[in-house]
């Protein structure tokens, strides 16, 4: 098992380095990045709104029940959970959702191109697969994942606000206090979103390019993509969160 992990890491690093190289030196394909941005953003937005909306409701319920039990007052639920949402839960859960939605999509697409020899055909025609397939997806994710994170945080916040009103009769004005969000919270959240945006397409793309052998190979590549990119999101969350703690606290 360790050997497989090592191979995945090595391939991911190689694909990442090649992507950066082709960003500087590769051929431009007109419209490719825009098409991928549409793919990444448009196809994940409903999914993100739905899952993060429920997350917002869940946090509010959990925090509210706990607050009721201990201090008997739920007015602090909103102001307490918004910074947490902005700097951690929002970016991380959006990252996990995108790793699931977009990561598997990229791996499935690239993986099926590998097993049907389309990637060989690309290499025959001066279209290196990393330049032609991975680079546009990388740029698209780098832009769209932070954008989706903003959408996700907003939907979690709104859903939380409505839940607070319905479950604990907390007025929206009491729940929605934006002054509690500090610049450091925004910086932590944004840095995580950008990091996830850079890492997810590379891991998923490398998993797809590693696919071997028919439909079983494609399925395996897709599984690898979601596992390793989710894991990367969680590890990066810890590392960047820890750094932010050391810098800001």
């Amino acid at each position: 098992m360790l050997r497989r992990v090592r191979r995945q890491v090595a391939d991911t690093l190689r694909v990442g380095a090649m992507t950066l190289y082709y960003l500087a030196r590769g051929q431009r394909q007109r419209g490719a990045v825009l098409a991928q941005m549409f793919e990444v953003g448009n196809r994940s937005v409903v999914f993100t709104v739905l899952t993060l909306g429920f997350l917002g409701a869940i946090i509010t319920l959990q925090a509210g029940f706990q607050a009721l039990r201990i201090i008997g007052d739920t007015s602090l639920v909103g102001p307490q959970s918004l910074p947490l949402l902005v700097r951690q839960l929002g970016p991380t859960l959006t990252g996990l959702m995108v790793a699931t939605r977009v990561g598997t999509g990229i791996a499935a697409e690239v993986g099926s191109m590998v097993v049907t020899e389309q990637v060989d055909a690309l290499r025959m025609n001066n279209a290196p697969p990393v330049d032609y397939l991975i680079k546009p997806r990388f740029v698209a994710c780098l832009v769209m994942i932070p954008a989706l994170t903003v959408v996700g945080i907003a939907s979690a916040f709104v859903a939380g606000m409505f839940t607070a009103q319905a479950a604990f009769h907390t007025q929206p004005a009491v729940y929605a206090r934006f002054d509690v969000v500090k610049l450091s919270d925004l910086a932590e959240g944004l840095s995580k979103a950008v990091a996830f945006g850079a890492v997810i397409p590379i891991i998923a793309g490398a998993s797809g390019l590693m696919a071997r052998g028919g439909s079983a190979g494609v399925g395996e590549a897709t599984t690898r993509a979601v596992v390793y990119s989710s894991l990367a999101v969680i590890v990066l969350d810890f590392v960047l969160g820890g750094l932010a703690f050391l810098v800001f606290a």
Binding site: E117, Q118, A121, M124, N125
Partner: peptide
């Protein structure tokens, strides 16, 4: 060197997101 080779692949290897015209024009 590959630019001097034409390859007919076993499993077609046609790009399924491109039209026939774009596929043939790809090289």
């Amino acid at each position: 060197v590959r630019a001097k080779i034409g390859m007919v692949f076993q499993n077609y290897a046609l790009f399924d997101y491109l039209t026939v015209g774009e596929n043939i024009g790809f090289p």
